[in-house]
Design a binder for these strands. Sequence first.
DNA 1: ACATGATTTGTGTAAATACACAAATCATGT
DNA 2: ACATGATTTGTGTATTTACACAAATCATGT
Lengths: 418, 418
Amino acid sequence: MNNFPNQPEQLKNSLNEVMDSPEQLADRIADIFECPITIEDSNHHVVSYSKHTEKIDEARIGTIMNRKVPDKVINGLWKKGVMPRLIDSDDPIIIPEMKEIGLGNRVAVSIRKKNEILGFIWAHTGDKKLSEEKLQLLKEAALLVKKFFLKRRQRKRKSEEGNKDFFWQLLTGDITDNNEIQQQAKQFNMVLEGKMAIVVIQFPANVTEQMEKHAYYLSETRVNVQVVSRLFDENKFIMLVRFIKEDHPSKLVTDFIHQFIEKISDQLNLQGILGSSGIVVEAPHKIKDSYKQAEKVLEMKAKFPEELQYTYLYDELGVYQFIDELYKIRKQQNNKNKYIEKLQTYDTKHRTSLLPTLRAYLQSDCNVYDAAKQLFIHPNTMNYRLKRIREVAELNLKDPNQKTAIYLDLIVENMTET
Amino acid sequence: MNNFPNQPEQLKNSLNEVMDSPEQLADRIADIFECPITIEDSNHHVVSYSKHTEKIDEARIGTIMNRKVPDKVINGLWKKGVMPRLIDSDDPIIIPEMKEIGLGNRVAVSIRKKNEILGFIWAHTGDKKLSEEKLQLLKEAALLVKKFFLKRRQRKRKSEEGNKDFFWQLLTGDITDNNEIQQQAKQFNMVLEGKMAIVVIQFPANVTEQMEKHAYYLSETRVNVQVVSRLFDENKFIMLVRFIKEDHPSKLVTDFIHQFIEKISDQLNLQGILGSSGIVVEAPHKIKDSYKQAEKVLEMKAKFPEELQYTYLYDELGVYQFIDELYKIRKQQNNKNKYIEKLQTYDTKHRTSLLPTLRAYLQSDCNVYDAAKQLFIHPNTMNYRLKRIREVAELNLKDPNQKTAIYLDLIVENMTET
DNA sequence: ACATGATTTGTGTAAATACACAAATCATGT
DNA sequence: ACATGATTTGTGTATTTACACAAATCATGT
């Protein structure tokens, strides 16, 4: 094992041999580096692990037993900033012991094609320290293992562009025939069954390679939802997600978007990343609707950032599903809301703020105390103003019909100003 | 005065003489009938009264002093059913003493041209009873006095058709030039200044002559508002009203419509008479808008009879100002409200009534007790159902955005069924 | 500067509302 | 028929909300 100059050759030969039987892949690498080796895919599922039993740690046991790295370990790696370094770098990363998650000393390197993470090689170095040359060798090993991953994903890879085209066709509704859709889906190894939705993540600026890398990674590693297909369009990352559990798709997709944004904001140290989803559909030809709706949500979130700060689903847009159209109607009708006008006139004449008060009141679900808090005034002041509103506008604040009209007209009115 | 066969001749001669000086009109008739005579126009304003001072009663004093019949007397006459008989008949009506309104024995006859009431002749008979021949003579007197009224209204009469045309032009917006409008208005003796609105009264069936008669009469005798112009179109009576007091035009027009409907329903013993008004405008060229709006109100009242039972003004239509358009939008969007759908599904599956409960709750301004009363259930039941609604629909009942959307979608949904 | 009326805030009380719990009723499937 | 869970109603209590009144502050015009 000291014949150092010979090692790369040896490695190549070994790997070429085992190209089709991944089981021995880790063993061969482990032989060269003299420590246990684990190879994972981008999803942190175990692809291959060496038989070495020395220097074994808790994390390794858990990983091999479940054929997947435990979530606790992955989270720990993220928290310590290991994962970002691993994803961003082509070089091996030395990871010191992390007792709290049962991880011994390790060296790891990512396996990637362009910006896409294919997987990772983990060397369980234990007390031993790898030399600079060995680290270099590990990097070369990664390049060679990459071939294995590429071959493994042969079907997927050979049609990656076609897959993208197909996804676009689904998004735009260019294919409507269900049989054709299912045929193509089979060809690209996509499952278009059960409950699905389009999720769009919008980045505030132009997307860098690093951002793409992280986005792709995150789209691979979710659990409750499965990302069937994904692509970047300008500064938007569009995903087709499928729901494994059929229970509460709204909650699942909200959580997914939440986590996605949280993690990627954290990892890239970026603010202002928005997420949205169209409604959950069951038929593939309705994916286009879900996409349109997801885009609509983003459009409305841009127009009403505060109001829709915590809204991600089209279903939850409420009146903002049709506020644009309503705006057109009201403008066309050319008839200002009588009550709003009266209050506006009164406000400008007497330098009061009855209209903003009414707005806060309506936006607080007609709760006097919440509305008062929002405006930093005493609840009695609020009540007094409401009394004045009733008098000045001759408005019955118990009439849901009028209140609804005012609520909408106040939103529409604000749209005029922008 | 016993030369009875000669009296009609005498009457004619007398009247021809005084045709242009109304002051002596009543005197001449009084001479023939040997009792005090009062002549009123359709508005119950005094046109002419005889000098006779015998058999004078309280009502006559009040009438002459104010140059108008006191409201108390008019109301009394309506209550006793005298006015309808007078309006409907060409023959003189004998009216017994009505002490409660200070009215002595009288005989009265209406003066009319076709269906339009021009005025009335009142004979204060006192203890005397008029013979059948004298009654016949009074009828002839009415015919002759009619000539006087027609001459009196010469300008108005000669252009009655033209007036109608002009009104239609205002209603349809055929004239837009303000100068032209004011010129024509002057020609037809119409005042088109200050605050105005179009009021439309809709009759349930085809309009008979009797109904027209009453409608014209009522349009003459209102106090706080002035009916500038009016016409019948199919089963609709369209009025242009002007506001004398500028204070609270909404209240004035509501009261006007209320009273109009109440009185005419009462007089004609008719149900289902609807009234509406467009917004109050200041510029004559906006009358067309007010007309359109008044028609829109009637249209919506037909579609939502219960909801808009007490709504007459366009301003007060609330969401019904745009519910038609919203219906189109929502149909086009082809996306059912998620919350409504969930509740509907649950209701059919479990034979519950969560959706009707939510509807009642929203329509009762989110007041649990009112909604419960409306549904004849215990308030606790209401609360329980609301809890289930929150759970089943995953709906936050404190979110005004969602609630507003549901409120509107519930209305829109009901429109589908019809 | 003063008077006036509108507005804001503090204090207290009455009424309305929410909520927990228990009992009764109902629907449904085994 | 029975068990089960959902639903309805009754009862009582704690909390919230509405409202009246008073005092203080502010704006405005003379």
